[in-house]
Every structure is written in structure tokens, then in C-alpha cells.
């Protein structure tokens, strides 16, 4: 069964259409990469999946059930975990308070702390520090901690690498791979295609709001440069 399925999704911002019938499947225990140039509609597709943006038509299915119109907080409680692009943290709360916010999905606070510190010991050192004063990498770790600590059914990562040094991006993707090996389904959007194709089981290329090509990463490598550069 697919953990997430988008069927014929159309979406618009005011009168500007962005997605034109996007179909996408995330099978259980697999990593799916959604790739494409700027403005192709990647983030919008994720926002639709997470309930943050209502599609103008089409269906969103989570674990086989239609969830159009379900509020994002309810989807989060059903195990859909979106780490938004930029820094997915509350900058004016402390690290401790940021971690406490993660307990709304049902995992106990003690378990969250334990799992977060196991993977990111740095966060323990910064426990009482205001999150906005952490370094970019530390902030992304804190954001990632939600995905690791709350047992999500599906982890959605939007531009994990944005504004981070390559070495930190590499570190973060190692963790993604590890999480994937534990059986968590992952949908990842990334501009650094080569990094993410190493981790993905399936990939889809989105151009002009349409899925232009989908398949195994190896089959898509050649098409990628065309999608990005028109070369």
C-alpha cells in the first residue's frame, strides 16, 4: 500500500495555476525524490500533501484514505511529518521548548529527548539555548529531530540542504539514509539532485507543474540535466 498518493492534483495561488494534474506515489518503506528546477511546483506539491495548501482539484490519499480538507495538524497527528524548507524551528523558543512542541503527535517528551540526543548530541549541549541563536546546521538538526523522534509514517523533507555547507548536507543525508533503512517512508524534495539520487528508490521530475518523468534514479539521470538546463 502507498503511504502517500497524489492523484491528478491541480493547485493555484490566487489566479496563478502552479500544478497541472500531478500524480505521485510514495510506496511503503521507500524513499521517493521529487526533483525539478526552481518554480516547478515541488514545494507546492509538498504543501498540498501536508494539508497546508488546498488543491483546486484532485485527491490526496494517506494510507489509502482520502484526506482532502483534513487540517495539517490532524495529518501531523496521523504520522505525516513535513520538515519545511528553510529552518523548520521556532526561533524564539528554547531547544527544550522546541522539542516539547514535538510531543503533540503522541510520542512522550522523554522519548523525544532521548532519541534526539542519541542522534544529535549537540542539541543536548544547547538544551536551554534559544533556537534562533543556534548555527544553521544545528537548527536543521533540531528540525530533523522531529522526523526522527516522533515515529512518523511518512517523513517529508523540503530542501534539506538550503543554505548549509556541503559537509553538513552530507551528514544530514547520511541520517536520512539511516532513517530510511529503519523502514520509514520518505518523500524528499531537493535541488542537489545527485546527493538525493544516491538515497532514493524512486524519483520523479516535475517541470512546469507536471510530472515530466518518473522511475528508478538510474533511468532518470540523463533526463535531469534537460529538465534543469534545457540542455
Amino acid at each position: 500500500m502507498n503511504v502517500l498518493e497524489l492523484r491528478g492534483i491541480h493547485a493555484a495561488y490566487d489566479r496563478i495555476d502552479v500544478l497541472f494534474g500531478v500524480d505521485l506515489e510514495v510506496p511503503e518503506s521507500s524513499v521517493v525524490a521529487l526533483l525539478g528546477p526552481n518554480g516547478a511546483g515541488k514545494s507546492t506539491a509538498l504543501r498540498v500533501a501536508a494539508g497546508l495548501h488546498a488543491p483546486s482539484s484532485g485527491d490526496v490519499l494517506v494510507a489509502g484514505r482520502r484526506v482532502n480538507g483534513v487540517r495539517p495538524e490532524e495529518l501531523a497527528r496521523r504520522g505525516l511529518c513535513l520538515i519545511p524548507e528553510g529552518r523548520g524551528i521556532f526561533p524564539n523558543l528554547t531547544v527544550r521548548e522546541n522539542l516539547r512542541m514535538m510531543s503533540y503527535t503522541g510520542t512522550s517528551e522523554a522519548v523525544i529527548d532521548e532519541r534526539a540526543f542519541l542522534r544529535f548530541p549537540r542539541l543536548k549541549e544547547r538544551f536551554t539555548q534559544t533556537a534562533g541563536t543556534l548555527s544553521g546546521g544545528e537548527q536543521q538538526m533540531l528540525a530533523m529531530a522531529r522526523g526522527l523522534a516522533t515515529d512518523p509514517a511518512l517523513l517529508i523533507l523540503d530542501e534539506l540542504s538550503m543554505g548549509l555547507a556541503p559537509i553538513i548536507v552530507e551528514e544530514l543525508y547520511e541520517i536520512v539514509a539511516q532513517v530510511a533503512r529503519e523502514g520509514v517512508s520518505i518523500l524528499v524534495v531537493e535541488q542537489f539532485a545527485s546527493t538525493v539520487l544516491g538515497v532514493a528508490d524512486f524519483a520523479a521530475i516535475i517541470v512546469h507543474g507536471r510530472i515530466a518523468r518518473a522511475g528508478r534514479p538510474a533511468e532518470l539521470r540523463d533526463d535531469l540535466s534537460k529538465a534543469y538546463l534545457g540542455a
Partner: peptide, 17 residues
């Protein structure tokens, strides 16, 4: 804490459940 979180980033607090 959720009250203060909602000010920081309302959509994110929804994503947290």
C-alpha cells in the same frame, strides 16, 4: 509553549500537530 510557538511560525506549529 504552543501559544508562543504559534507566534513564531503558525504553519509550523500545525505541522507539529
Amino acid at each position: 509553549i504552543a501559544m508562543r510557538a504559534a507566534v513564531d511560525d503558525r504553519p509550523l506549529s500545525m505541522l507539529n500537530g
